[in-house]
Nucleic acid binder design. Structure first.
Length: 249
DNA sequence: AATCTCTTCAACCGCCTCCGG
DNA sequence: TCCGGAGGCGGTTGAAGAGAT
């Protein structure tokens, strides 16, 4: 198992180690984590280096308390996505998946349990009853598989524009090559929904959502925690089944 | 002041997926 | 097609600090 070597250091990072890692990333850039320990002169495994960078050393990481609007967003996203912390964190600039997960487990999970059941077991708690969760379908395709499938798709639809393909179902294929070196595809409803999600005040699925950072209070938090506001919008988030089948024959 | 209990969060672990040979 | 390595993720742990007794 990785990290089991007796010579690999574990535990809390020292300032000196942080400095070495920082310098290494500044010099060589992010990625190729297997080379980082050697390049940085660190006696750490690649995973430890990656984690330390992503969760602590990376520039623009926001530390400290979560703002009310961040909390609100976490709750809503968790209702939609479940424990998919990296996706949730991706919607919170400056926050890491680890931060969000920790915050959920220490603040919100406890609160959720308190409000839903006094007897529930924290370890077994996953989601509120009736919560629909986006299934873990990949929404980002590797460049290789995407191009193969896109080519196939375009051949079937007489469309040679590889950057953007619109189907009759308003499904949009967008070039997202700056994101994970791949491509993503979103349907129109999904894009609109995410747009709404990111607005401070928007009507979503017939509910006027209040999530201003200034006026959210405990009662609002309680209300959010006890309501499933997003049941019907969930279906809108699912990708077009037909297109999915094209890419995943 | 000392000890115990609780809370927080950084870090580790194991698993999964992707990719290249 | 298979296999091994790398990247990435979510679950869990445990050390350290805070608060209570």
């Amino acid at each position: 198992m990785e990290g089991s070597s007796l010579r690999v250091r574990k535990g809390a990072w020292t300032e000196e180690e942080d400095l070495l890692l920082k310098k290494c990333i500044e010099k060589y850039g992010e990625g190729k984590w297997h080379q980082v320990p050697a390049r940085a002169g660190l006696n750490r495994c690649r995973k430890s280096c990656r984690l330390r960078w992503l969760n602590y050393l990376k520039p623009n990481i926001k530390r400290g308390h979560f703002a009310a609007d961040e909390v609100d967003l976490i709750i809503r996203l968790h209702n939609l996505l479940g424990n998919r912390w990296s996706l949730i964190a991706g919607r919170l600039p400056g926050r890491t998946a680890n931060d969000v997960k920790n915050y959920w487990n220490t603040h919100l999970l406890k609160k959720n349990i308190d409000t839903s059941s006094k007897t529930s077991n924290p370890k077994s708690h996953k989601l509120k009853p009736n919560t629909k969760v986006i299934k873990p379908r990949p929404q980002i395709l590797s460049k290789r598989s995407f191009l193969v499938n896109l080519d196939e798709y375009n051949n079937n639809n007489n469309n040679n524009n590889n950057d953007r393909v619109e189907t009759s179902n308003n499904v949009v294929l967008a070039d997202c090559s700056d994101n994970h070196d791949g491509y993503c595809f979103l349907d129109h409803d999904e894009m609109m929904w995410w747009e709404n999600m990111m607005m401070n005040e928007k009507e979503v699925d017939g509910h006027q959502l209040q999530c201003s950072a200034n006026d959210i209070d405990q009662s609002v938090l309680d209300q959010i925690m006890n309501e499933d506001n997003y049941g019907n919008t969930m279906d809108e988030l699912f990708l077009d089944e037909e297109l999915w089948n094209v890419f995943n024959p």
